[in-house]
Design a protein around this nucleic acid. Structure first.
Lengths: 265, 265
DNA sequence: CGACACCTTGAAGAGGTTCAAGAAATGTGG
DNA sequence: CCACATTTCTTGAACCTCTTCAAGGTGTCG
């Protein structure tokens, strides 16, 4: 299958993390469980590869605490002081920028294993909001601790650089999408990308639940919610997907891929 | 003057660097001149602030060589191995992503003091092209050298993080522009942003030369070259700018700002 | 169960694109 | 240095995609 060139999925996880693995489902209370990256089955997504046992033990120190974020509430808001990066353990977020004039742009949707808060580094305060679209839990990683450890563990240093670079490349993809694609192409790319990212996490990849509203999809893709709705309906009519409310099933991946890759001009 | 919320200018240089300062114009041959950041008057743009004399001396080691890039040629291309970041000394670049299907998106225009190549970090190869739009010279900074020094000099470490974060935030601004603005608003934001960045470098800020074609502007802003041309003509008719070919003079900044900030919906 | 948010669909309209042609500037080779 | 080719830019007219406005339907949560 040809890779969607657009909103990039995390590049690393070659072997998908299975969120449904037994260790994850067993009734361990995450509140009382020792916070330890070395035990976390999202490790391959969050943490650098190729570190020694000793280094891994030190990396455990990075996560100061965990934090639960209820659906509809913010993890951080634009303007707030920046202190930490956040690794998503469970749940689903959107990030969006707001302008005084009321304009609003969703800049991304983030899921388990992804890192948010990078926008805050440059000026020590956040420049966008992070909103949980379902109940979520994040690992709080104080940025100065990351810095200290990165100075000692070069694999971590490089990992931080890669995470930020990956976000830059992802945004290039979004710019391509917004700048050069038509509505159908954007939405097809979006659906395929979501599926790929879920698949990389051990989920179905073809059967997915949209955690966001049509309006949020529209904001992200630069189109109105009516156009999102209409285009989804059209895809369903054409037999490419099955959509009932927020439950979406991808029926014809190759054709969706073709829609993405077809040059309109 | 209200700040354009969009493609962010470099956040740091509070006191503009004057490229026309005497030291810069004197007939020092940059070829033979010792490569030394500590002497460079773009220092405030490229290098961290608040480092000691000794540290600054070590930072000089970062720039391995300089490299001239003729107009129309590439500094790097998508797919090439990534080894170095580049600090622009003189000249003007565009970066753009290309997809097999022929799609093409300009992701940014870069000028003196700005850093390019960040996209290459994540997978050790570049994912976009950097093309000189006028004869240019860049400082070549091997990334592994940066890493080594950053582990010793925490100001440099933080500086690297800030540069990458700034790029992420800038791209958020572009996403807002592409996702939620109409043609006139995009172009007004673009012109003001260019002016601001030139002003921060000691140039006029209201009198500028467009180094790129209408088509390149259009690609960046997600519109066709004809629309760029028409919209510029309209701005000129309305007395907001004066434009002859690539020479643009901003005549009415407040009104352009109003166009950017007006919420269309 | 009722209020509210979310979603779908239709019809009209606007903004931007496409196609086309000509003008202006730039670069090249004699 | 001029003539010619090429690239870049401008402008018009028709067209099309997406938006806007509107109304009704569906799902969800307290």
């Amino acid at each position: 299958m040809k890779e969607t060139p657009l909103p990039a999925q995390p590049a690393q996880p070659e072997q998908p993390i299975n969120l449904l693995a037994a260790s994850h489902l067993q009734a361990v209370n995450p509140q009382t469980m020792k916070v330890a990256c070395s035990n976390c089955n999202l490790r391959e997504l969050c943490m650098p590869v190729g570190v020694t046992r000793q280094e891994m033990a030190r990396l455990d120190e990075i996560v100061a605490t965990r934090r639960k974020v209820k659906r509809g509430t913010t993890l951080f808001r634009s303007g707030e002081a920046f202190r930490s990066l956040f690794a998503i353990r469970t749940g689903f977020f959107k990030t969006c920028v707001n302008v005084e004039d009321g304009r609003n742009q969703v800049t991304g949707f983030q899921m388990a294993g992804e890192i948010i808060g990078l926008d805050g580094i440059v000026n020590d305060h956040h420049t966008c909001d992070a909103v949980a679209l379902e109940d979520a839990e994040v690992c709080v990683m104080p940025f100065d601790r990351i810095g200290e450890l990165a100075r000692e563990i070069s694999a971590l240093q490089h990992h931080v650089h890669r995470i930020m670079s990956r976000e830059i490349v992802r945004e290039h993809g979004v710019m391509l999408l917004l700048g050069s694609m038509r509505a159908e192409e954007r939405l097809a790319a979006f659906v395929l990308n979501l599926g790929q990212r879920l698949y990389a996490r051990g989920f179905s990849g073809s059967e997915l639940v949209l955690r966001m509203t049509r309006e949020e999809i529209g904001s992200y893709l630069g189109m109105k919610l009516e156009t999102v709705s209409r285009t989804l309906s059209k895809f369903a009519d054409d037999g490419l997907i099955d959509i009932r409310q927020r439950h979406l099933r991808i029926l014809n991946t190759p054709e969706l891929q073709r829609i993405v890759n077809q040059q309109s001009a």
